[in-house]
Structure formats: C-alpha cells, structure tokens
C-alpha cells in the first residue's frame, strides 16, 4: 500500500535529515497537523515535487503547502527553480521567498537558511547556537582543520557536526541532533 496524502498541511523537504529536524521541531512546538514529505535533494526536485503534488489525495486534501530547500550558493536561483516547477504544475507560487501566497492552495517556498543568504539548514541551526559555550571549541577546531590540506568541502556541515560531536550523546546529523533534543 502506497502513501496517500491525508492531512491538510504538507511540508516538502529535501532529505531524511530535514524530515527528522522538522518533525522534532513541530513536535516541540506542539504541532501535529502537518505531513512532512521528502522530495530528495535539489537534483530530484524536478521529478519528485511534481510526483508529490500529483499523488493521490493531494488536491483533494491539501490546503497549505510549503516547500523547504537549501539555498546552497544562490538563494534567488533556488527560489526561482522551485517556483518554476510549481508553475508547471499549474500552482500559483508566491512572488517572494519565505512568505505564503494564498492563491487557492496556500503556498510558500522557504529557502534555508533564510534572509536570502546562501547556505543551508545547518547554517540556520548554527546561528541559533552562536553564543553556546561549546562553539568556542568548535570554532577553534574548524579554524585548525581548515588550515590543513583537504579541508571539508562543506563548512556548515563540518561545523554542525563538530558541535553535535561535543554534546553528551553524539548525534551524527542535525536531524538526529534535533530528535535528541539538542
């Protein structure tokens, strides 16, 4: 048996880590009426976002639909790409990122980490722990690592994982970290 959309609010995210993260966040906020669906990384949006929107039950049930994607190098390009896919599905995407538009289905495209900045969900999480005492150690470690040959390719992920390695019970991703309450 395949999954049919049953809830009125649907959140489309990139991967398992985002599912874990937003699932924990929604539980923390006491919100239970949102269905989270994974549409894969940015390269899979082209096929999986239409597949989700056109799956059985979507148009019958969904009233609010939000798509969350990482900005990576360019938030505007990421927004335009998602908007383009939604337009082809005859949905009316919002003209501005990170805001809902109400054209039939209430539809929003949220580009992480927000404020049109480049980056990803990890950047948003790191912003929330900038003043955490453990970040002093994390920053020193990262600074040291980046002086070496072959430094990590993704600074935000490296920093986030360094932070998560410093918590009492190690979590290997922000999603798992969120699930564990950090």
């Amino acid at each position: 048996m395949l999954n049919v959309i049953r809830k009125k609010k649907v959140l489309a995210v990139e991967g398992d880590d985002e599912i874990n993260f937003f699932d924990s966040l929604l539980k923390y906020l006491g919100i239970s009426d949102i269905e989270i669906r994974k549409v894969g990384g940015k390269d899979q949006f082209k096929n999986k976002l239409p597949a989700l929107v056109e799956s059985s039950g979507f148009f019958d049930n969904v009233e609010v639909f939000a798509v969350i994607r990482d900005a990576n190098a360019d938030a505007n390009a990421a927004f335009a790409s998602v908007k383009n896919i939604l337009k082809k599905l005859n949905l009316n995407p919002p003209t501005q990122m990170n805001k809902f538009a109400n054209n039939g289905i209430k539809l929003g495209v949220f580009i992480m980490p927000g404020n049109s900045a480049e980056g990803m969900l990890e950047d948003l999480c790191l912003n929330t722990v900038q003043q955490h005492p453990k970040m002093t150690c994390v920053n020193e470690f990262i600074e040291c690592i980046f002086k070496l040959e072959d430094p990590p390719k993704n600074l935000a992920k490296a920093k986030a994982q360094s932070f998560l390695s410093a918590i009492p019970i190690i979590a290997n991703s922000i999603g798992i970290g969120a699930k564990k309450g950090y």
Partner: peptide, 17 residues
C-alpha cells in the same frame, strides 16, 4: 505520468492510483 515521474512516485511510496 511520464516514466520519470512514475518512477519517482513509486520510489517515494506515493500513491499514483
């Protein structure tokens, strides 16, 4: 559904019927 979208739906476990 073209093949790519059908494949994506079935991989994701989303109902197509």
């Amino acid at each position: 559904y073209k093949d790519e979208k059908l494949k994506a739906s079935l991989e994701s476990g989303w109902e197509v019927r």
